[in-house]
Design a protein around this nucleic acid. Sequence first.
DNA 1: TCTGGGGTCCTAGGACCC
DNA 2: TCTGGGGTCCTAGGACCC
Length: 412
Amino acid sequence: VSKQDGRGRSVTLEPVDDPAASILHVDLDAFFASVELLEHPELRDQPVVIGSRNPRSVVTAANYVARRYGVNSAMPMAVALRRCPKAVVLEPHYERYTHLSRQVMDICRSLTPLVEQLSIDEAFLDVAGARRLLGTPFEIATELRRRVYAETGLTCSVGVAATKFVAKLASGLSKPDGLLVVPLAETQSVLFPLPITALWGVGEKSAEKLRRMGLNTVGDLASTPLSTLQGWIGEASGAKLHELAWGRDPRRVVVGHTEKSVGHEQTFGTDVLDPEVIRRELLRLSGQVAVRLRKAGLAGRTVALKLRFGDFSTITRSKTIAEPTATGRRIYEEARDLFDAAFAPGQRIRLVGVRVEQLSEGDGAPSGLWDDDEDWREAEQTLDALEAKFGRGAVRPAALLRTKTDQRHADT
DNA sequence: TCTGGGGTCCTAGGACCC
DNA sequence: TCTGGGGTCCTAGGACCC
């Protein structure tokens, strides 16, 4: 079968099989947009863009009709609407996406336990052990695509190869609604003609650097001596890219995934000059981060603050503390101190973010007294108000917690 | 009408230790 | 007597991915 991909290139799809190619990469097509179209089938042939209405928003997803106008994810909404004024803009509904994502992942897991979820709309499957029960990887991929469509109404693309990287590449080449098997023996002939940006980890900056060195295709990169490459782009990146260019990728499909950091950030509708507004936002973000940490049973030792200024320049400041924490109060205190040290009056703040790193399985969260997150938030707000009145450090959180608990007992 | 929010990984310098 | 090499941790910045 021969068909066109999203960029008008011709892609050949063959029902080939190769025992060495047992890794599947599943990728839902234009996921958020496709989900919204399930609810609005009448818009199917119109350009549809997902994003919020606020003036600083970006495109989170675009259907294939909109992409023909040059509209893509991460593009400022203003630019997207300039390119495609007739685009229908729909607000995102994350609960729907999460729900459908779960359905699709369940279908994957019914085929093999070796499923590694990469993001909300992507997963790797290793079907080496499923061959005798379910058939060749090609047959399994076909069945997977059939079931995803039958059970959710969504189309997906699947790449099949011997490695994760090539499988992911293959799903991208087959998009939308495609299936592409790259047998081990054909890996290099598929890889070498592709532009260097096809390599996982080569974005615009690296591509520009490599092009200046005369490298335009994956094949060019493969034939560059490793040490030369490392001299240009660094030890680790050089080695990794060189391996990928030859189609070598030792990463296995792993089922569990441990988070390394948890964070939240917020861009203001208009830049903020008042540091008190920033501190309030820091308190809110710290609380959100803490809630997520406690829900995951985690605590962290490093608190990182992120500030983006009116001119879009961005700084980060971080502080590592001795004991892991998962309380909004503690996270906020560090974030606020970092902010106070970094902020100079007159600066316009566009974005503020809080992230907690160096996570461990945490008894950093005091449990028992306050395991209810609503109570936490309320306590933190109360504390904030008291500090505003009596000054920082004038209120002992422990005392407040006790008072609050006593009061609840009294109410009961 | 110019730039979201969630992340991961790498680099590089300095402090510190053996 | 003027300065090695290996390792870890911390901090800041940046590229990249979805």
